[in-house]
Design a protein around this nucleic acid. Sequence first.
RNA 1: GGAGGGCUAGUCUAAUUGGUAAGGCAGCGGACUUGAAAUCCGCCGGGUGAUAAGCCCUUCGGGGUUCGAAUCCCCGGCCCUCCGCCA
Length: 422
Amino acid sequence: MLDIKFIMENSEIVKAACKNKNEQDNVDKIIDLNRMRKIYTAERDELRRQLNEISAEIGEIAKKGGDISSIKVKAKEISEQVKSVEEELSIVEKELDRLVLTVPNIPDSSVPVGFSEDDNKTIRIIGEPQKFDFVPKNHIQLNEKLHLFELERAAKITGSFFPLFTGKGAKLVRSLVNFMLDIHTADGKYYEIFPPFLVNRDSMLGTAQLPKLEEDMYRVEQEDYFLIPTGEVPMTNLYRGEKLSEDDLPIYYCGYSACFRREAGSYGKDTKGLMRLHQFDKVELVKIVHPDNSYDELEGLLHDAEKILDLLGIHYRVRVLCTGDLTFASAKTYDIEIWAPGTEKWLEVSSVSNLTDFQARRMNTRFRSSKDNKLHYVHTLNGSGVAIPRLIISLLETYQNSDGAIEIPEILQDYFGAEKIE
RNA sequence: GGAGGGCUAGUCUAAUUGGUAAGGCAGCGGACUUGAAAUCCGCCGGGUGAUAAGCCCUUCGGGGUUCGAAUCCCCGGCCCUCCGCCA
């Protein structure tokens, strides 16, 4: 959510952001409604002032035992006027609140303008594609022999695109979770969180999955709870509605969570194997920081996510997303994509974003600045470190041998308890 | 699921049974001091003003009664205790 004052004073910038992000532009409506809101508010305040005055008078007279019947008639009249103005005001405010939630965050000036993922820019490529002296298999072909996951049986239990890892596959997932958490929490850099996987509606509004993406979320109707689409939601909402001390910042969290996405509208895209799932595991990184250095924190977060891939020896590239591919709440996002040599595709395993004060304003998370002793919104950032099923695709395809066995990267061997899967 | 208790500003804690939110602590600024502690003065929920005055809002959220609600009524949320059920 943007500051309504900012929208009023920078309407052209906000309109440009709507256009560049392919979001609907409600700016003019918002400006009109806000003007009406100010008029009604002024009217309400004046009436209320009169009412407060006359009520105090009634109190005085009553205390002295005087007659208050005639003055009460007048007070009643004003009271009713207040009510009628408030009714008008609340209609305006409701609509205004609804529309303000539809305005996207403003992209940072360093973000390239563009309309689709084709306009994203690769800023670095790390490592080389694995070379094979045989034709590499994709992870589905490899799995025929290895039995690391069973998608048909999973579909029987739940439905298609829910994974079921078995045997060494299940252990691989577990060892990756432990490995990544250990790396991120080393030296106490990130504080480990194990969050709830169900959150309430306020949390979903706070991180801006709602109202826009309700169709993509699994919802528990009885309680109006939502299955989290990412650990970002519970972890960023930890301080919703709270006032922090400046000394509390920066806050670094990492945590494992399962993630649930309906992926409505994406059927037919990347439907093979573990490419796109309704449920997947992920280690998430979240930062709550001082607004002065959130872009430095973004670079740091990106490197922390990349570190996992460096250590595993995975070939990857980092892309900066163009305005059109940026999510609603993000001011700047880097995608990390890893190479899957059997599938011959780049797979997104992490989106690292600076949400600036956009989520903080929705969540009402502020800190008291020592400079002016006033409350300011924090900046929030998040990124995966990293998503597991796609990482498994790349690991299997990268480290396969001609006989279909998989070499486990050295750093993972202690966690996995073996040097090979065969 | 049942019974009871509770929710007031960063935190703790009041408000004459309906009269318009009082204080303590912490924090910030200043005075005193060689320095610190103690003490004293000021600031210390939000909005709009200009860091003014003034005004308005704010007692978990939403409704209602009333001239006037922290207080009374209704609906909902969360926390605590006990009972029941349960991995």
